[in-house]
């Protein structure tokens, strides 16, 4: 196999990790929306914590993205 082709396949495979982040963000947001529906007065606090949780879950996908960008543009 040519090196260029292997690079493209590797970059694609690296992004598989985004599955976990997607599921995580969905769970976080779902829980937050349920909590806001039950207790609308707490919306501000819940939103802050939700954004934090999303940022943590998303960081994993960003690691995958950085790895695949490195494969594509650096190596």
């Amino acid at each position: 196999m040519e090196a260029a082709a292997a690079k493209l396949i590797g970059a694609g495979l690296a992004m598989i990790g985004a599955i976990g982040a997607g599921a995580g963000i969905g769970i976080v947001t779902g829980g937050a929306v349920q909590a806001m529906a039950r207790n609308p007065e707490m919306t501000g606090t819940i939103q802050t914590n939700m954004i934090l949780g999303i940022a943590f879950a998303e960081a994993v996908a960003i690691y995958c993205l950085v790895v695949s960008l490195l494969i594509l543009f650096v190596f």
């Binding site: 940022a55 943590f56 960003i62 690691y63 993205l65 950085v66 960008l69």
Partner: peptide
């Protein structure tokens, strides 16, 4: 690591 890669990854991927 996570601070640096989160901002960099999001913005660079956005530009691309």
């Amino acid at each position: 690591l996570s601070f640096a890669f989160r901002l960099f990854g999001n913005m660079f991927a956005g530009a691309v």
